[in-house]
């Protein structure tokens, strides 16, 4: 049974009450609950509910962001404690960036927030990343999934060029590729050879998990 304090923490994340989330996290630690359990039984169920509400159109960007901030405030307390004890919790490794020519980052940042909240270790390589930038990061790192975002219609071809470059560099088998952004469609994702398309941050979480299950 989930301790009551973690139910309260989950509720604080859903409602975006940062001070409460911090308070309940500290209380949980004082009660002797392990960091990893606070994350798994308090924070993740909380942010998942937020994602579901966003996916259903009941939550919007403001609610999503304040919930994300509440969760991050709790993580800021838990993570140093876990590190000092040599504990860690990671679902998988995710590389993310916006494609060449595109400097918009709010969509990417929301996806990062949701991924982190769901236990992913995320490396953000930033905006306006040329194909060789993605290739270099994939080559040098150890990632399960590479996510690329393009907000503009005009930068969509850059996503295709990036996937092509990843293939040419012989890295395609090393990584699963997800794509998102306002003008992107399932049809486009299939056409350029991405593994998954996600229409919003919540779908990105669900599909990332599905791809990870395929890998493992």
């Amino acid at each position: 049974m989930v301790p009551e304090i973690l139910e309260s923490l989950k509720d604080a994340v859903i409602k975006g009450k940062r001070d409460e989330a911090v308070g309940f996290t500290k209380e949980a630690i004082q009660e002797g609950i392990k960091g990893i359990d606070i994350i798994k039984e308090g924070l993740i169920p909380g942010i998942r509910t937020v994602g579901e509400l966003f996916g259903k159109g009941e939550y919007y960007l403001p609610e999503l962001l304040v919930s994300g901030k509440s969760m991050q405030s709790a993580l800021d307390i838990i993570e140093p404690m876990m590190t000092s004890k040599g504990e860690s919790f990671t679902v998988g490794n995710f590389l993310i960036g916006t494609v060449k020519g595109d400097i918009h980052d709010i969509g990417k940042n929301i996806v990062i927030m949701m991924l982190k909240g769901n236990g992913w270790n995320v490396t953000d390589i930033g905006v306006d990343i040329p194909p060789e930038g993605f290739c270099e990061a994939i080559h040098d790192g150890d990632y399960h999934i590479c996510g690329m975002s393009t907000l503009l219609t005009v930068t969509m071809p850059a996503a295709a060029e990036t996937i092509e470059a990843i293939k040419e560099a012989g890295l395609r088998d090393k990584i699963k590729i997800m794509i998102g952004g306002a003008p992107v469609t399932q049809e486009f994702a299939e056409k350029i050879g991405a593994d998954e398309y996600a229409k919003d941050a919540w779908e990105a979480i669900i599909k990332a998990q599905r791809l990870l299950d395929e890998i493992k």
């Binding site: 159109g57 919007y60 960007l61 403001p62 229409k199």
Partner: peptide, 12 residues
């Protein structure tokens, strides 16, 4: 709004 609906709730 964005592709999936309004940027903020109808109330906001």
């Amino acid at each position: 709004a964005m592709t999936n609906g309004p940027l903020v709730s109808p109330k906001f």
